[in-house]
Design a protein around this nucleic acid. Structure first.
Length: 741
DNA sequence: AGCGTACGAATTTTT
DNA sequence: TTCGTACGCT
């Protein structure tokens, strides 16, 4: 039972929050600044509507972008309203659309037992298409093609639509790839992530009956992080909302950091146009940070031209200035951070989990991680490789996928020789050819291998694989997911192969597989009915959940993550690292000539700053080696936007490139942490190369270009040059025929 | 089929 | 620099 009385629901809220919560029916736009209690308002509003009898739980649809946000919302609503909570639909765009398509997709030709392809699977298909169409991967990288197709789907463009608007050679190539890619998905009985949304919109547009049913059902619509919505998601939401117009959206254009994925924060700003009768509430009171942090954040973000004016404030006036530290190189930067953390824990009695270290790109994490390890500071990295993306997990899941949907030939190809059982590429392509001839799926061909024309050895290898498949298929009709998974692991020989390998890696893989079994058990235990326990439901969860929820909150460890991953989180002590021109903002954004790119970097900076509960540090390095190239960077332009009295330079005398004594550096480490003289010598050597960043050079075959970087010295010295016609090349100076212009 | 090597690419990544 | 992949050899 809910233990919160209606009165206390309101009294714990500030005036603006109350205004949002108590708004009755009709559209509502909530500008919710960082740390302004957005989820609270959303959940309380839902509770309020139910209490007032304005809405029934089954009429509520709440959409988020991440599973984490969805789960949090579910929990918090349940705490407020009690039992009725699970009759609401609360989930991510993708999971909700999957559910709708599962129920009604057949009307537009989406089969009931579709599987969801992840990026790996997509890439496999793209490569197949490249092979068929003889497209040169050099000219259009498969990943790029995938991106462009994804963008197209986010814009609701079909292959035909896309072909009409394709202009550049790259787009023309994509226009050739896209229809075949789509055909292959279909042949596999698969949808990709973007299809889930796009097909649902197509369904709504195709069937007034289906749309009408959902409109009737979901009379109260809530959308979280509305600034991150893309065109397809916008259509999805708008179509449902247009009937009753009870749509409540929450967002913050200043925290829009996913433009590169199709998010369009203009849709948030456009809400008042779409719903002229909308009530608008701004939540500007912040409950997370001291005033100095909010001021710092404001001075950065207010430089953006495209934004809705708003400013966070707090009752916690004052607060410490932001500490800035410029190290000689990234190792010294890491050492500084480690020292602060150790002091904080030892002297001030803080916990490791109070600290977060944020960086712009994952490549920065290695040095930080190494130092944490050396210093014995417990840490966890957020992001990294996702559990379900690990090879061994994907392998086992691929078995399950094939058992569920035998047409999934991408899955079948993955497992047919995993573990190796003597079925090579030649055999597979022969089987594929025969399957195509007979118009059957690869799995059917494998099962009918006795009628295939194959060399005896291959024949018997495929036959024994087919027998394994048959056995598992029979089993899949009889037992639950956990039992089936266990059978797959054993009968496929996967476990045996790993046991025999007996290396550190194979043991980790075995552990992961066991982890998978506990995941299936947990899945079955949590399900509410048989349908919820089904293989279908499990596979859907696997595809739509990226990480096993190992959120051990009491894990006392420093958190390392990208700025993107930090959105929505908060930490008492925050380090923003790499605050340098070229790193943050990234060179690409700074040079692109498109101010919008820089504005997105700035928003990212804003997001980082506003994570802070107490103390923020900006750290930077004078020289930084990234991707094998050393660059000498100036402090980030974002720091220049901040008034000096909000910043405090930390004395750098206590740590130089040479590690402090107490850190007991090993001899081998000395090479990784060169003393200042060495760095200087390297810098001088660099000058000897004879080229500097920005020089114009001429190459006999590539033409004229601009020097982006140099590395090394003497014979091996390399130079990175951007040739406008060719692209960027890294050349060995001694061999490249270069002339300086 | 399995291994070794050479080459290329490296923002950010909710699903 | 480091990781992953593709290709070619045995």
């Amino acid at each position: 039972m809910p233990n919160t009385s209606p009165e206390s629901i309101l009294t714990s809220l500030n005036a603006c929050q109350q205004e949002a919560v108590t708004h009755g029916v009709g559209p509502l736009l909530i500008f919710a600044g960082a740390g302004s209690g957005k989820t609270r308002v959303l959940t309380h509003r839902i509770a309020h509507l139910l209490r007032e009898g304005l809405a029934y739980p089954e009429q509520v649809l709440a959409v988020t972008f991440t599973n984490k946000a969805a789960n949090e919302m579910k929990e918090r609503i349940a705490r407020l309203v009690g039992r009725g909570a699970h009759r609401m639909w609360v989930g991510t765009f993708h999971s909700l659309c999957a559910r709708i398509l599962r129920d009604d997709g057949e009307r537009i030709g989406v089969r009931k037992n579709f599987v969801i392809f992840d990026t790996d699977d997509q890439l496999t298909i793209i490569n197949d298409v490249y092979g068929d169409l003889k497209i040169d991967p050099q000219m259009l990288k498969p990943n790029m093609a995938l991106n462009l197709i994804s963008n197209a789907k986010n814009e609701l463009l079909t292959p035909d639509d896309y072909a009409k608007i394709a202009r550049s050679p790259k787009e023309k190539a994509v226009a050739r790839v896209y229809p075949d890619y789509q055909a292959r998905l279909e042949a596999n009985g698969a949808l990709d992530f973007d299809d889930l949304i796009m097909k649902t919109v197509v369904l709504f547009r195709a069937s007034a009956e289906v749309l009408g049913a959902y409109q009737e059902r979901f009379r109260f619509l809530f959308v979280d992080e509305y600034q991150d919505i893309n065109q397809a998601q916008y259509q999805f939401v708008s179509l449902i909302a247009q009937q009753y117009r009870n749509i409540c959206v929450v967002g913050d254009d200043d925290q829009s950091i996913y433009t590169w994925r199709g998010a369009d924060s203009k849709l948030l700003l456009q809400f008042e146009h779409d719903y002229p009768e909308a009530k608008v509430v701004k939540l500007e009171q912040n409950y997370r940070s001291p005033q100095t942090i909010l001021d710092t954040a404001y001075h950065v973000i207010c430089q953006n031209r495209v934004r809705k004016e708003k400013r966070l404030w707090t009752e916690r006036s004052g607060g410490p200035p932001v500490k800035c530290y410029r190290a000689n190189d990234e190792h010294a930067e890491a050492a500084f951070i480690a020292r602060i953390i150790r002091d904080g824990v030892r002297v001030q009695g803080r916990n490791y989990k109070d600290y977060a270290i944020l960086y712009r790109i994952n490549a920065q994490s290695r040095v930080l991680e190494t130092l944490m390890l050396n210093q014995g500071i417990p840490y966890r990295i957020v992001g990294g490789q996702k559990f379900f993306a690990r090879k061994e997990i994907k392998d086992i899941v691929s078995y399950l996928r094939v058992l569920y949907n035998p047409d999934d030939s991408v899955g079948l190809r993955r497992i047919i020789n995993t573990p190796t059982r003597g079925i090579g590429a030649t055999t597979v392509s022969k089987l594929e050819g025969m399957a195509a001839e007979r118009g059957i799926s690869l799995t059917q061909m494998v099962l009918a291998v006795e009628h295939a024309d194959l060399p005896a050895r291959a024949q018997s290898a495929v036959l024994s694989f087919a027998q394994v498949l048959v056995r598992l298929m029979e089993l899949s009709a009889q037992v639950g997911v956990t039992e089936l998974t266990r059978a797959v692991i054993e009968e496929s020989g996967y476990e045996r192969a790993l046991l025999e390998e007996n290396t550190i890696q194979s043991r980790t893989r075995l552990e992961n597989i066991r982890e998978l079994l506990s995941a299936t058990q947990e899945f079955e235990a949590e399900a509410e009915d048989d349908e919820g326990r089904s293989l279908r439901a499990f596979l859907e969860q696997v595809s739509l959940i990226t990480e096993i929820d190992t959120a051990k909150n009491d894990d006392n460890a420093v958190t390392l993550m990208t700025l993107h991953a930090a959105k929505g989180l908060e930490f008492a002590q925050v380090f923003m690292t790499g605050m340098e021109e070229g790193v943050f903002p990234m060179a690409r954004a700074a040079m692109s000539g498109n101010p919008a790119d820089l504005e997105e970097e700035r928003r990212l900076c804003y997001v980082g700053i506003t994570r802070t509960g107490e103390q923020l540090y900006f750290t930077m390095a004078s020289s930084r080696t990234l991707f094998g190239a050393t660059t000498y960077n100036n402090p980030s332009r974002f720091l220049r936007d901040i008034p000096e009295d909000l910043l405090e330079n930390v004395d750098s005398s206590f740590t130089v490139a040479r590690p402090p004594r107490e850190m007991s550096w090993e001899a081998s480490d000395a090479q990784q942490h060169p003393a200042a003289e060495v760095i200087l010598a390297q810098a001088v050597a660099r000058l000897d190369v004879g080229y500097r960043t920005g020089d114009r050079v001429r190459h006999t075959t590539f033409g004229d270009g601009i020097v982006l970087a140099t590395q090394g010295s003497g014979e091996q010295a390399k130079i990175t040059v951007n040739f406008p016609r060719i692209g960027t090349k890294t050349l060995v100076i001694a061999y490249a025929q270069l002339t300086k212009l």
